[in-house]
Structures are given as C-alpha cells and as structure tokens.
Simulated scan of single mutants.
Amino acid sequence: MGEYVGERKVRFVEDVIGPQAQEEIRKLKVGEILVLDNLRLCSEENIEASAEKLLKTIFVQRLSPLMDIYVNDAFATAHRSQASLVAFPEIVLGIAGKTMEKELKILDTILKKPKRPCLYLLSGAKVKDRIKVVEYVLKTGNADKILVGGLLAEIFLKAKGYKLGVVNEEKLKKYSDLLDKAKTLLETYKDKIVLPKDLALNKNGERLEVSLENTPFENKISDLGSATVELYSNLIKDAGLIVAAGPPGIFETKPFDWATKKLLEAMVESKAYKILGGGHLGGAAEILGLKEKFNHISTGGGAMLTYLSGQKLPAVEALKRSAKKFKKNP
C-alpha cells in the first residue's frame, strides 16, 4: 500500500479486534494509515446474517466505537452479508469508495442502457449464478444473445436432449434443478441462447474436436470446438456490448485454453464496449497481455453476476440505508 499513498505512513498490526489493534487505532495521527490483519481470522466475520444480528457481535462492538466514518471499496465482497460489510454502516456514516462507485456505475449502465446488440458470453464453474443472469437479462430484454461455454454449456446441451456420455453426465446429476430451468429457458428464448456446434474432448491429454452430431462422447468435455469459436467470434464482431464471465474451457491446461484465447482475441478486435468478470477470465486476459484492451475488468466476478441477475447486493444496500439514516441525523 505504501507504494500508492506517497509519503503517508503505513503501519500493519497483526491483530483485528484485540487490545493491540485497538491501541494502534487510537494512536493514529491525521494522515496515517493502519492496516489490520485479515478480518476473516475472526469467526464472526464469516457469519452471513442480517445487519441487526451482526450488530450484536463482539467484532462490531469492539471496532465501531473507534470509527468516525466507514468507507467500503470492496466491490468483490458486496454480495455477502457479513459484519464488516453491513453492520458498521448502521452505526456510522457509510460511503462507497471510488472502485465501488465505478463498478456500480458501469453495471447500472449495462442493465439500464445497454449498447446493441448486447451479447453475454457466460462460462465457468459457478453455473447457478450464471443461470440466474441468463434468466434475468433475457426476461428484462437487456441481452440480445447469450453464448454459453464450460459447464453451463453442458447443462444447456443436456437440457436440449443431447447425450453427452457417462463421463460428462455423471457430474450433471447434482444440477437436476438447473437442467429443468435450462430447458424452460431454451423453450422460452430459443433464438437468443446460442449453444455450441462442436466441442473439444480430452483424449489422453490430446485435443479431440467432435461435432454435436456424434454424441454420446467417451471422453471428458474440456473446451469449445473450432466451429463454435468461429460462430461466437462472428457474433462478437458485430456486438455493441459484450459482457463475459468465466473461461469457456479448462484454461489452466493446454491445449484446452485455445477457445478462451481465441474468444478473448475476438473481443479485443470487436469495436464493442467490452466488460470481463473478475477471476479466471480476467486473469487469462492479463496472461495474454490483453488486459488493457478491455473497457472494464470487474474486481468481483461473484458480485458482478449477482448484480446482473437483478439481485440486491447486501453491502450496497447497507450503504444506501446509512446515507438515508445519517442524512436525517447528521
């Protein structure tokens, strides 16, 4: 942190709510910065609950008297309802930091005034979050096309009636509720959800591309195939807004990083406004040297998906309540 704050004095204390932390906070002079240890070392910080319940924790009761104002700049955790996120703004004025403010402004624009055509490329392992996004942005008309990859693509393909083979369908058994939801979405928005035309299988570490006409598969699905990448790239080329979250293949393992690379390159070449979710896809863009060519890379994949699915972010709602409360009672 010292690299970013110039000549300001930055200190670290290996404590969170104990006597040492409290003493160091009281000793702070104007302009000085104190970094506490990881808040999650306190068990109470790992509790998901209402602000009313979290106000009763020792964590909040010990630290809140030492505060004059609360600033939340951790957008990546905004989808959680934990003590440091929702309780403190009930006691002192809470405001959003610059990063939080930027994230919310961009996401509000996506939902309220998306450039057209608006395209979502959704992949990755957190399929429950992504299904909610698919449902919400299609229901509200915010998305024109949804392109799917990774496990999400497998769920939609299975819902469509494709037999993906025992090695692939075994892991889908725990997603029976999502399969039903995917089937409904395909029936309702059949022209808006774009499914893969082919896939890449892992055959003894080698990449084997197969058409969906050749199901069931004997090997594990590990990436999108070249025909699908071409289809998706053509849609990306003509998009006005692209929102992407999650790598469409097993990016950590070559040669199953191919589709991720190609689709990131296609996004960069597009004149669309380009947004990536945090996490693996943002990391992939950085590894490939493409990070600076995107208009925005979110600092929080989970929080971004929660917001884009129309759900409220507990930490943001806490700031809103705080603003109303302390505006009336300064």
Results as ranks from 00 to 15, higher is better:
P255A: 03
T253P: 03
E90P: 09
Y162I: 04
L288R: 02
G246R: 05
D238N: 00
G301W: 05
T260F: 06
E317C: 12
K274C: 07
N72M: 12
G18W: 13
G94A: 04
D144E: 13
E292W: 11
S176M: 00
K132G: 04
Y136W: 12
G6I: 05
K324L: 15
D15K: 08
A153I: 09
I25F: 08
S211H: 09
V5R: 07
V316I: 15
Y70Q: 12
E269Y: 06
K126M: 05
F217C: 02
I91H: 14
K262H: 03
T306V: 14
K98E: 14
M1A: 13
T299R: 09
D15S: 06
D37M: 10
E135G: 07
D144Q: 07
A143P: 07
L66S: 14
L63D: 00
A303W: 15
E230F: 10
L290F: 08
K325Q: 13
Y162P: 03
W258A: 00
Q22C: 04
K274N: 08
E7R: 01
R62C: 14
E24C: 08
G124C: 06
A323M: 15
E45M: 02
L264K: 05
F156G: 02
N168Q: 04
K128R: 11
T57W: 11
E7Y: 06
V210M: 06
S226C: 08
K271W: 01
H79P: 15
L281N: 05
F88C: 12
L319Y: 11
I91D: 14
A303E: 13
K262P: 00
E218I: 00
L147Q: 03
Y273V: 07
L111K: 13
